[in-house]
Lab assay of single mutants.
Amino acid sequence: MSIQHFRVALIPFFAAFCLPVFAHPETLVKVKDAEDQLGARVGYIELDLNSGKILESFRPEERFPMMSTFKVLLCGAVLSRVDAGQEQLGRRIHYSQNDLVEYSPVTEKHLTDGMTVRELCSAAITMSDNTAANLLLTTIGGPKELTAFLHNMGDHVTRLDRWEPELNEAIPNDERDTTMPAAMATTLRKLLTGELLTLASRQQLIDWMEADKVAGPLLRSALPAGWFIADKSGAGERGSRGIIAALGPDGKPSRIVVIYTTGSQATMDERNRQIAEIGASLIKHW
């Protein structure tokens, strides 16, 4: 067993022997301040990774656009098919120029040779490549099948209805392509620590998230040296922004954090800054 596999296998073990965790309302004060600064709703939840206990939450059962955070769930569904012998990570998928959609920095470079399922998941999570996500959605049967996968996990809230990039439209009061912070946090925890996926697939999923290259201005910008984070960000229309993450000190994750916002007129930089400040408060009061 590799060191990384050992780390993920012992996530519940280490967490069980940690000192009790206590909620700190100071972080919620910052979440509410972010709402004021952005002029928009902000949803927040913080779960203990081992027990699933909610440590703090704000608007945990209000719907927010998922945006690209759905790509972690998508690759979880792909990995479940791999575990069941219905898919192979090494299978190569070929596609054409007509398949390319807006923001496809990886797939646009491989029109000639195609990409493997493993490479597509890596591109979808680490670079948020939209064509990679659409190609992977095709392998599982489309958005409705991802929703069905989530329902089978016990998540009857999260739903995907459309493809990239239309799913980022974020129309107010439109339930399409949305989740709730509580539902997303619980589902992410199941994917990373539950028995739904094999140990190898859980490790692969967290490795992809740990290698995320496009979430630097968010929670990662607030992390002290030595902290662990595996995350996936999302951005959408109407001032929408979000991030889902597993993080913790001492090089291992111990909490799940989900943050979503929508309806702001603020710039992307300002949305990023507010999420980073929430992260800084979380870490300060850990």
Score class of each variant (00 low, 15 high):
283 I>N: 03
178 T>E: 02
236 G>N: 06
66 M>K: 00
223 L>K: 07
20 P>R: 13
91 R>F: 05
233 S>L: 02
98 N>H: 14
226 G>D: 11
206 I>E: 09
182 A>V: 15
191 L>F: 12
9 A>G: 11
177 D>A: 02
227 W>P: 00
254 S>D: 13
52 G>V: 04
88 Q>G: 10
107 T>E: 01
160 L>C: 11
47 L>N: 03
138 T>S: 15
33 D>T: 15
21 V>M: 05
237 E>H: 12
96 S>Q: 13
6 F>A: 07
6 F>I: 10
149 F>L: 09
258 V>F: 02
52 G>S: 07
70 F>H: 08
261 T>G: 03
238 R>Y: 13
11 I>P: 05
189 R>V: 09
212 D>N: 08
168 N>D: 07
241 R>S: 06
20 P>I: 02
118 R>I: 09
98 N>V: 11
114 G>Y: 05
165 P>L: 08
214 V>D: 02
180 M>K: 14
27 T>P: 06
58 F>N: 15
116 T>E: 10
249 P>L: 06
279 G>M: 04
207 D>H: 09
10 L>V: 12
156 H>R: 13
285 H>T: 15
255 R>H: 05
154 G>E: 09
201 S>Q: 06
213 K>F: 10
186 T>H: 13
149 F>A: 08
273 R>G: 12
158 T>L: 01
151 H>T: 12
97 Q>R: 15
101 V>E: 10
221 S>T: 13
144 K>P: 10
201 S>L: 06
100 L>A: 04
145 E>Q: 14
29 V>M: 11
267 T>K: 12
121 C>N: 02
200 A>P: 13
215 A>I: 03
138 T>L: 12
205 L>R: 00
244 I>A: 07
49 L>V: 13
13 F>P: 07
214 V>C: 06
126 T>C: 11
119 E>A: 10
75 C>Y: 00
74 L>D: 00
230 A>R: 01
118 R>M: 10
75 C>L: 05
178 T>R: 02
256 I>Q: 01
74 L>T: 06
130 N>P: 00
46 E>R: 04
264 S>V: 05
108 E>F: 08
274 Q>S: 10
80 S>H: 14
243 I>N: 02
187 T>R: 01
143 P>I: 05
254 S>V: 12
260 Y>G: 00
260 Y>S: 02
191 L>H: 04
245 A>Q: 01
129 D>L: 00
242 G>S: 07
284 K>H: 09
127 M>G: 06
256 I>T: 03
121 C>I: 05
160 L>G: 04
186 T>K: 13
133 A>Q: 00
182 A>Q: 13
252 K>W: 09
82 V>T: 09
143 P>F: 03
158 T>I: 02
284 K>G: 12
126 T>G: 11
273 R>Q: 10
45 I>C: 14
252 K>Y: 12
160 L>W: 02
89 L>A: 07
48 D>T: 05
14 F>H: 04
166 E>D: 14
239 G>T: 02
250 D>Q: 15
15 A>I: 14
21 V>Y: 05
244 I>V: 13
109 K>T: 12
27 T>R: 03
175 E>G: 10
19 L>N: 15
119 E>V: 02
146 L>R: 00
32 K>A: 14
243 I>P: 00
265 Q>V: 12
73 L>E: 03
286 W>G: 02
62 E>C: 07
10 L>I: 12
35 E>D: 05
61 E>C: 07
103 Y>F: 09
209 M>Q: 02
10 L>S: 10
250 D>H: 14
106 V>G: 06
284 K>C: 09
7 R>W: 08
245 A>G: 09
40 A>W: 06
135 L>F: 06
114 G>N: 05
114 G>A: 05
211 A>L: 13
236 G>R: 01
180 M>P: 03
118 R>L: 12
200 A>M: 11
183 A>H: 12
233 S>C: 02
188 L>T: 09
277 E>L: 12
56 E>T: 11
52 G>L: 05
27 T>G: 04
223 L>G: 03
150 L>W: 06
50 N>A: 12
83 D>S: 06
162 R>Q: 08
143 P>L: 04
8 V>Q: 13
286 W>H: 04
36 D>L: 15
226 G>F: 06
126 T>D: 07
89 L>S: 06
25 P>F: 08
87 E>S: 06
281 S>Y: 15
59 R>K: 09
10 L>Y: 09
33 D>Y: 14
221 S>E: 10
152 N>F: 12
55 L>T: 08
17 F>L: 09
142 G>V: 01
171 I>V: 15
38 L>I: 10
174 D>G: 05
251 G>F: 08
141 G>S: 07
147 T>M: 07
49 L>C: 08
126 T>F: 03
22 F>R: 10
155 D>T: 01
152 N>R: 15
205 L>C: 03
40 A>T: 08
169 E>Y: 12
112 T>H: 14
275 I>C: 05
232 K>C: 01
40 A>L: 05
231 D>F: 03
256 I>V: 14
265 Q>W: 10
137 L>T: 07
279 G>W: 03
75 C>A: 12
61 E>Y: 14
203 Q>A: 12
165 P>F: 05
261 T>M: 15
47 L>H: 03
154 G>K: 07
176 R>G: 06
283 I>V: 12
213 K>L: 13
5 H>N: 14
266 A>Q: 11
248 G>T: 01
216 G>T: 09
130 N>M: 01
241 R>E: 03
174 D>F: 03
53 K>N: 14
97 Q>V: 15
262 T>N: 10
286 W>R: 02
214 V>Y: 05
255 R>E: 03
56 E>L: 08
53 K>I: 14
110 H>Y: 13
124 A>Q: 02
39 G>I: 09
145 E>A: 14
206 I>C: 14
225 A>K: 14
163 W>V: 13
234 G>T: 00
243 I>S: 02
263 G>S: 07
178 T>F: 02
118 R>K: 11
278 I>N: 00
116 T>S: 10
15 A>R: 01
80 S>A: 11
89 L>Q: 05
212 D>E: 04
237 E>R: 13
46 E>W: 04
145 E>H: 09
207 D>V: 11
169 E>I: 10
161 D>G: 03
137 L>A: 06
82 V>K: 06
182 A>Y: 14
257 V>W: 02
182 A>M: 15
18 C>S: 11
262 T>C: 10
6 F>P: 07
20 P>F: 03
16 A>Q: 12
43 G>R: 00
143 P>W: 02
8 V>I: 13
237 E>Y: 12
236 G>H: 02
158 T>G: 05
226 G>M: 07
219 L>M: 09
49 L>A: 09
208 W>E: 03
167 L>F: 04
133 A>S: 11
155 D>E: 05
260 Y>L: 10
119 E>Y: 03
46 E>Q: 10
177 D>V: 01
90 G>V: 12
46 E>I: 07
262 T>M: 09
95 Y>P: 04
70 F>S: 08
119 E>T: 06
277 E>H: 08
141 G>K: 07
259 I>H: 00
25 P>S: 10
243 I>R: 00
202 R>S: 14
13 F>D: 01
54 I>D: 06
208 W>H: 03
114 G>H: 05
231 D>H: 04
106 V>N: 06
207 D>A: 15
3 I>K: 14
82 V>I: 10
197 L>P: 03
190 K>C: 10
138 T>N: 15
65 P>Q: 03
269 D>N: 12
267 T>D: 14
169 E>C: 13
96 S>D: 12
35 E>A: 07
85 G>M: 08
206 I>Q: 12
218 L>W: 02
181 P>Q: 00
183 A>F: 08
134 N>A: 04
48 D>V: 05
99 D>S: 10
243 I>A: 04
283 I>W: 07
40 A>R: 03
27 T>K: 05
257 V>N: 01
221 S>W: 09
135 L>C: 06
121 C>Q: 02
283 I>H: 05
46 E>K: 10
240 S>A: 13
114 G>S: 05
29 V>C: 13
205 L>H: 01
285 H>Y: 14
230 A>I: 07
7 R>H: 13
130 N>H: 00
89 L>P: 07
24 H>Q: 11
208 W>P: 00
179 T>A: 03
111 L>E: 07
146 L>H: 02
19 L>Y: 15
39 G>A: 13
82 V>D: 05
37 Q>C: 11
3 I>Q: 13
107 T>N: 03
17 F>W: 10
127 M>W: 13
173 N>K: 13
172 P>M: 12
29 V>I: 15
153 M>W: 15
72 V>I: 09
5 H>W: 05
235 A>R: 02
202 R>E: 10
260 Y>F: 15
193 T>A: 15
130 N>G: 05
196 L>S: 15
171 I>R: 12
198 T>V: 07
151 H>L: 14
134 N>S: 04
54 I>P: 13
258 V>S: 04
139 T>G: 12
1 M>N: 01
233 S>H: 01
211 A>Q: 14
22 F>N: 09
66 M>H: 05
42 V>L: 13
251 G>Y: 09
186 T>E: 15
77 A>E: 09
